[in-house]
């Protein structure tokens, strides 16, 4: 068994923390783990991509273009930008809350309608699931817990090789105690939402 997750978003959204939780859970489950992260200049408000691969005899820190089993999109435009990491069988989870690039915020460029972004991926694959992770995180207590919502959502993905309980426990081990309840509540909301329909 080998499983590859590509996690995309914007610096500051908690992409690296999410990758650490998933990676540590895979290690706990007894799998080999290889990951690749973006550090340095690219982090200054730019797009962030983190690759996580686990399974038997996994050693390469990168996945082939098109080789992802799962694309976790923390931001709609970044999800669309990286759809080429997927193939026709890949699962895609997309957070619907946009983070505006600075040239958009300043009015020099425009950000496409989110509905249009969703439709553009649906034209390519039936495997897109959307989630309002930021809104669910607010329900749990704070918008910053959106990454915990996303991890909960992953636990509900069809055929995901790591158990919900293991992910939930690993999340609990990796967040500061004072944010434990917030993160677990956010995780549960993500899981429940993704388990419906």
């Amino acid at each position: 068994m080998k499983y590859s997750i590509q996690i995309v978003g914007v610096g500051g959204q908690g992409v690296l923390l999410a990758s650490m939780v998933l990676g540590n859970a895979a290690m706990e489950a007894g799998y080999d783990v290889a990951m690749s992260e973006v550090h340095g200049m690219a982090q200054r408000g730019g797009s962030v991509l983190c690759t996580l691969r686990f399974g038997d005899n996994v050693i390469s820190p990168l996945e082939s273009v098109g080789g992802a089993d799962l694309l976790m999109g923390f931001e709609p435009a970044e999800t669309c930008r990286n759809v080429g990491l997927c193939n026709k069988d890949s699962q895609i989870i997309m957070n619907l809350d946009p983070v505006l690039p600075s040239m958009v915020a300043a009015g020099f460029e425009t950000y496409p309608e989110v509905d249009g972004l969703v439709a553009s991926i649906k034209k390519l694959t039936p495997n897109l699931r959307t989630i309002d992770a930021t809104e669910l995180a607010k329900q749990a207590g704070k918008a910053v817990a959106a990454n915990a919502v996303m991890i909960g959502a992953v636990a509900a993905v069809k055929g995901f090789p790591l158990s919900k309980d293991l992910l939930r426990k690993t999340l609990a081990d990796n967040v500061p105690p004072k944010f434990l309840d917030l993160n677990l509540k956010a995780f549960d909301l993500g899981y429940e939402t993704m388990s419906k329909d």
Binding site: A77, R81, C86, P101, T110, K123, L124
Partner: peptide, 12 residues
């Protein structure tokens, strides 16, 4: 596996 083609929306 063959990658999905790019989306048909102009991205910022």
């Amino acid at each position: 596996p063959a990658p999905l083609p790019p989306v048909d929306v102009q991205l910022p």
